[in-house]
Simulated assay, not measured.
Amino acid sequence: MSSGEPGPVELSIREKLNVVLNPVELTITNDSWQHRHHTAMKAQGGGNGETHFSVNVVSEAFRDKSTMQRHRIIYAALSDELAQGLHALSLKTKTPEEINSAASA
């Protein structure tokens, strides 16, 4: 959104992921402005400004889960948003140990 304030979709994503994942780190970036020219977004009049997000989340909930399983947890948590116009998520999902190993390498 142009004001820099998070919109209702972003706030909902943040709230739901905090509840489901209890993350150590959660960064949500609204990338919708980069996609406003896409055909699907033009059909929606440019969209509501909250259609594409990048999500970086670090959580113990991802321990012993594959990348696919981690993404499924997030997609399940955000099923309402996806049904109501959230078009795309770019996900980075790590455990705290994975972050620590990368930092010490």
Rank of each mutant, 00 (worst) to 15 (best):
I73C: 05
V9F: 02
A102V: 04
A88R: 07
A105V: 10
N100F: 06
A103T: 00
Q69E: 15
G49E: 10
T39E: 14
S66H: 03
V19F: 14
H71K: 02
A83R: 15
G46R: 04
L21G: 02
G45R: 12
S101F: 05
G4Y: 04
T51K: 01
H37L: 07
G45M: 12
E98M: 04
I73T: 08
Q34Y: 14
R72T: 03
I99K: 00
S104G: 01
R36A: 11
P8L: 12
S12R: 13
D31P: 03
Q34H: 14
A77Y: 10
S32I: 04
T67Y: 01
V58S: 00
P6K: 03
Y75V: 11
N48I: 08
Q34F: 15
P6Q: 04
I74K: 03
A40D: 08
M1L: 09
I28A: 09
D31M: 15
I73D: 04
K92C: 06
V20S: 14
R72A: 05
E50C: 03
G7S: 03
E15M: 13
T27M: 07
V57N: 00
V24L: 11
M41H: 14
H71Y: 03
N56I: 11
Q44R: 15
S12A: 15
E5C: 09
H37W: 09
A88N: 06
G45W: 12
A88C: 08
V24G: 00
H35I: 01
S3M: 02
N48G: 14
V19W: 09
L17A: 12
N100L: 12
M1V: 04
G4F: 05
S104P: 00
Q44T: 15
Q69M: 02
P6L: 07
D64R: 05
M41L: 14
N30P: 12
